[in-house]
Amino acid sequence: MTRKAGSVVFQNVRKTFGAFTAIPDLSLTVEPGTLVTLLGPSGCGKTTTLRMLAGLEHPTSGRILIGGKDVTMLPANERDVSMVFQSYALFPHMNSLENVAYGLQSSGMGKKEARERAENGLELVGLAGMGQRLPAELSGGQQQRVAVARALVLEPQVLLLDEPLSNLDARLRRRVRTEIRELQQRLEFTAVYVTHDQDEALAVSDRIIVMKDGRIAQEGSPRDLYETPASSFIADFIGEANVVPCDIVAVSDGKATISIEGLRHVVPALSARPGRAKLAVRPSAITLEPADDAAFPGRIRHAAYLGDHIEYEAETAGGTLFIVDPSVDRLLSPGTQVGIGLKTRGIAIIAE
């Protein structure tokens, strides 16, 4: 249904609001046919970036290109993009078919053709036969899909999604994000997706751009960001991580031997050099052993049974560790002395 997917390029874009600088200097590229997520905490600049791409804000300086065309100062209606808003913005007095056809008719398309395109759009998102239902007669997930269909039938070069799942409950959010990802991969349209939800970003993205204070803190594939965070901020923001001090004892053949409170372990070296460093350790990468069998002692401070896993907090000489243990057959009570071990995956030296 969509026309050829377009690229997105920001070249040294700066955005100020009076004396406040929201975006100091932003350069990024979104390749055609990919889904790229702008991820970050509130106030990091991700929504301002999306609004500039949509034409709802204009940069103070720099250039924005869509499909190779400079759109920096073009108004929203002259850009080849469609946007799915956080609130869905469906007309409550129109049924689903009329909502999807609205943009087509507003652009001058005949009523019959617009209706046919709208029906195809609803079928595309799995809502065939539901065109006569009003938004109030649809579930939250169905309303969200109507909003996506309304955007897609305009055949934009780029689809923009602003926190599209924030109004859904957790279970529905998981299902709908899968539907969005499958739809994007099947139709191969370019999508720029904004969220503050790390799990959502990991689940849907080809590439994630993590923003902090209007700048790019790190960008890469979900696996790259999770397994090789470039800073303590990234390590803690992309999934939870324990950031602990360590000593890099030796580096050889792309591997580093590190020492934490006497426990030695081998991890990917990247650009590490011998000396003091910080280590990002995922909660699931920590093992709990009998106290006599490990050189890294700890004491259970808190335990919480959550059905398919147990969450622990353990006090160690290097600080408190958060641990996710899949072994639900045992529950270690607070005060229990344990030995801390490390798995092979889920551990990375922080480059900062």
Rank of each mutant, 00 (worst) to 15 (best):
P274D: 13
A272D: 07
P32W: 00
A241E: 12
F91H: 08
A203W: 10
V84M: 06
A272Y: 09
R223P: 00
H302R: 15
M211G: 02
T37I: 03
S61H: 08
R186D: 09
G67E: 10
R264N: 03
A19H: 14
A54P: 02
A151Y: 03
T2M: 06
F296K: 02
R175A: 05
N120Q: 14
T34E: 13
L50C: 04
A151K: 01
A76N: 09
A285H: 05
G307D: 10
S166K: 08
R133P: 06
S327Q: 14
A118T: 13
L127T: 08
N77Q: 12
L65T: 08
D236E: 15
Q105G: 02
C246H: 00
A128N: 12
T16Y: 00
E261D: 13
T47D: 09
L165C: 14
G254C: 00
L134R: 08
G275N: 11
N12S: 14
P297E: 05
L38I: 02
A22H: 11
V324A: 05
M83W: 01
S87A: 15
Q144C: 12
S166Q: 10
A285K: 03
T336P: 03
A201S: 03
L342H: 03
T316M: 11
A241W: 14
D213T: 06
G131K: 04
G45V: 06
N99M: 13
V266R: 02
L127I: 06
R330E: 14
Y312D: 00
G254I: 01
S271L: 11
A277Q: 12
G254A: 01
F189V: 09
R181M: 11
T228Y: 15
S106Y: 03
Q184E: 07
D197A: 12
V194F: 04
S82E: 07
T2G: 06
P283T: 10
S284N: 13
R181E: 12
Q143C: 15
P75F: 07
T190H: 09
S327I: 10
A201G: 04
Y88V: 07
F233R: 02
K112Y: 05
R115M: 14
H196E: 00
A149K: 07
P245H: 10
R282S: 11
R177C: 07
D199N: 06
G141A: 09
V30N: 12
N95F: 04
S232F: 01
S284C: 05
P222A: 00
A235K: 09
G67I: 10
I23G: 08
H58S: 09
K255Q: 14
P164V: 09
H58I: 02
A294N: 12
H302E: 15
R174T: 12
Y226R: 01
V194A: 02
G55L: 05
D292C: 05
V249C: 06
D206F: 13
R115N: 14
E200I: 02
P75G: 03
L202H: 05
L202R: 04
D80V: 13
L161S: 01
L342T: 05
R301C: 00
E113N: 02
L279H: 01
S252N: 11
K15G: 00
S231K: 05
